[in-house]
């Protein structure tokens, strides 16, 4: 399955928006946190998990999705949200804790909910797996055509919820695609130290579903394999497990000293940046000219700048708003 030119350019654009977005969020996050790094300070307080390097996993999968399809994302959700089409301004307002944010400032960066495109994320490892199965169940019971994608990190594949959810989706033959973004680290603990198998994709066999490992952090390869899995789901043939090799170019969260990383790992990953590689590919293949690529990049930056400016200019919630929205 090959992407059309339009799909290729869409993927590149979303990858660049995502990266520029993380850069802008990182800059905003550091405001008020230097020289004294206190998480409580600045316009974006709390923890911040960036997705730099993992963009291919977002675009290669979401390129196949429609609004009615559900995505449950992780604590590292920005790339997935952007690729799923979450409103960038409302998302940014949420991250800045503003009244016009997706959740009116109640959720924050780990709790982005956009009902218009059926996107949700969470801060508990493995929490989105069950809800993805449920969204697929709901679509099936309502005889609707939507499918569900559950994103997790490779560390989450050791959670009970992972195994239970795969089994449930399989026995009920539900249209779910489980996506593991394998960046090889769960905070400071390596995949090798935490996981009994080299590739989590082999675990699919235990639940009678196809499983595939995609190496290379390449959006085109991911597009192809994810496309087939999503087609299977849409055709009523049940769930699939995909594990996508990727790279965490940032720390676990901003401020992570990353003392646990082997010497040279970071440099090697940076030298292998998926955006740089995809950019070269597009030009080499004659998919786009240097000028066209630059136009995309300029537009991406403008979109990000606009979202950040929008969030900054937006109103704070009223303190008492904390007490509302507890019940429907």
């Amino acid at each position: 399955m090959q992407p059309t030119l339009e799909q290729k350019m869409w993927m590149y654009e979303k990858m660049v928006v995502s990266r520029r977005y993380e850069e802008a969020i990182a800059a905003a996050y550091m405001e008020g946190k230097s020289p004294v790094f206190n998480m409580a300070n600045g316009p974006v307080p709390g923890e911040m998990h960036l997705s730099n390097g993992q963009e291919p996993c977002a675009v290669g999968v979401c390129a196949h999705l429609k609004d009615e399809d559900t995505v449950t994302a992780t604590h590292r959700p920005h790339h997935q949200a952007i690729a799923k089409g979450v409103d960038l301004k409302r998302m940014t307002s949420e991250i800045f804790g503003k009244a016009n944010g997706l959740g009116g400032g109640r959720g924050g960066h780990m709790h982005l909910f956009d009902d218009d495109v059926n996107f949700a994320c969470s801060g508990i490892i493995g929490q989105g797996l069950g809800p993805a199965v449920g969204a697929a169940l709901s679509q099936t019971m309502q005889k609707k055509s939507g499918i569900a994608v559950a994103y997790i990190g490779e560390g989450a594949a050791n959670q009970g919820a992972f195994h239970e959810s795969l089994n449930l989706a399989a026995v009920w033959n539900l249209p779910v695609v489980f996506i593991i973004e394998d960046n090889s680290w769960g905070i400071s603990v390596s995949k090798q130290k935490s996981t009994a198998v080299e590739k989590n994709s082999v675990r699919a066999a235990g639940y009678g579903m196809p499983g595939e490992y995609v190496a290379g952090n390449d959006p085109l390869e991911i597009f192809k394999v994810a496309g087939e899995a999503i087609e299977r789901a849409r055709a009523g043939k049940g769930p699939t497990l995909l594990e996508l090799q990727t790279s965490r170019l940032a720390g676990h969260f901003i401020g992570d000293a990353e003392g646990y990383r082997p010497e040279g790992e970071k440099d090697a990953l940076e030298a292998d940046d998926p955006i740089t590689k995809f950019r070269s590919h597009l030009i080499e293949q004659g998919d786009a000219t240097e000028q066209e690529i630059e136009n995309i990049e300029t537009a991406a930056q403008a979109q990000v700048d606009e979202a950040i400016a929008h969030a900054r200019a937006s109103e704070d919630p009223a303190p008492e708003d904390a007490l509302t929205s507890v019940f429907a």
Partner: peptide, 16 residues
Amino acid sequence: FPDVPIPYAKIMEQFC
């Protein structure tokens, strides 16, 4: 702490 989930925005969390 009032009987609500803990809000993210500083202004709301500090209020609680």
